[in-house]
């Protein structure tokens, strides 16, 4: 009796301490992220902005693949839909850019919902097939509706300008916009996963039959996962349009979808830090290795994906977590 009471207290303290450390770590990371653009040259700021854009897209993909266990080889399509929604709204209807974000996210959400309905009936590799086919089909479709999308030439847009009160340069302003959206997305995803939705998704991933017996409605949660995931990808696409100021069908080929999946797998399926690590990976591995050979990024991506699946199914995020646990702590 008495021993259990004595033990119970240190466990609670330990948990509290771990919790504090985690928040301290996140705050430190955020401080560094805010400080960085004042120290870097504009090109590096742009690269970091793109890391955040990819991280938001991967966050969405992670909800679907990492947490709900459904495969998507076509997430680039939702990214493209978000990007094009923003571009068309700004170009044809001259909408101010902040308004395009909710609209682009909503369009992607509805599309994800619409695709999620047939996807409920498809399992595993069939879902992968359908999503792949959609990603392939999107490019000629974008080229076809030329009066809206600008065809193969794409659309060129003015980038959002920093307001005068901020005193920031254009690249810094874009970076902070993206950072704010990324942080909001992470908070949203984290609270989503901590809620009953998150638990339901994990149940669906781990054992569909058991989940159903526990009262989780499979069709509802699978469709929902698709829609949420598409929404994040669409939001990321919208920010992409702001940052690049240009969209064309050839930026959103099936390679984008495959690269996103590769980044997520290497970054870490089913973890919150996985998308950030994946974003870093997707951004920097190609730009560094391209100096060796045009094909080098592909070779590295391909080998790493296979290696990660063998030795570290939780990706870089899981690997980092394991290393941190090994560091001896002072008592």
């Amino acid at each position: 009796m008495s021993t259990t009471k004595v033990q119970a207290k240190p466990v609670a303290v330990e948990r509290r301490r771990r919790f504090d450390r985690r928040w301290a770590g996140l705050a430190l990371l955020l401080a560094a992220a805010i400080y960085a653009p004042f120290q870097l040259v504009p090109f590096h700021v742009f690269q970091l902005t793109m890391v955040l854009v990819y991280a938001v897209a991967l966050l969405g993909l992670n909800l679907l693949v990492g947490h709900a266990g459904q495969i998507s080889l076509g997430h680039g399509a939702f990214f493209a839909v978000g990007a094009y929604a923003a571009a068309v709204l700004m170009d044809r209807w001259a909408l101010p850019y902040p308004l395009t974000l909710p609209l682009a996210a909503a369009v992607a959400f509805v599309l994800g919902l619409a695709l999620g309905v047939p996807a409920m009936r498809l399992r595993g590799l069939y879902l992968a097939l359908v999503t792949l086919a959609i990603a392939i089909f999107l490019v000629p479709l974008l080229k076809r509706f030329e009066e809206l999308t600008g065809g193969s030439m794409g659309l060129t847009l003015a980038k959002p300008q920093p307001p005068a009160w901020s005193g920031l340069a254009e690249d810094q302003w874009l970076y902070f916009l993206t950072l704010a959206i990324a942080v909001a997305s992470f908070l949203l995803a984290a609270s989503l996963l901590r809620s009953r939705v998150g638990r339901a998704l994990h149940a669906v991933r781990d054992n569909e039959t058991a989940a159903e017996v526990m009262g989780v409605r499979l069709s509802f949660y699978k469709t929902l996962a698709f829609a949420w995931s598409a929404m994040f990808a669409g939001a990321a696409g919208c920010v992409y349009t702001w940052v690049i100021g240009f969209v064309s069908p050839d930026s959103f080929t099936v390679n984008l979808s495959i690269t996103l999946l590769a980044g997520l797998v290497v970054g870490g399926l089913g973890s919150l830090s996985g998308p950030v690590l994946g974003g870093l990976f997707v951004m920097f591995v190609p730009s560094i290795s391209q100096d060796v050979n045009d094909a080098a990024p592909g070779v590295i991506f391909g080998l790493l994906i296979i290696a990660v699946m063998y030795v570290a199914p939780t990706g870089l995020a899981g690997l980092a977590g394991r290393l941190i646990k090994k560091i001896p702590r002072k008592e």
């Binding site: 495969i71 590799l125 999946l261 797998v265 045009d294 592909g298 296979i306 063998y310």
Partner: peptide, 30 residues
């Protein structure tokens, strides 16, 4: 490449063959 993931969940196998896809494509390009 395939033997180690035989019997693994479908997600794992699909991802491994997608990895193979990227690798072979890039290797030919190289």
């Amino acid at each position: 490449i395939i033997r180690p993931v035989e019997g693994a969940p479908e997600l794992t196998i699909v991802i491994v063959t997608v990895g193979l896809f990227i690798f072979v494509n890039a290797a030919a390009g190289w």
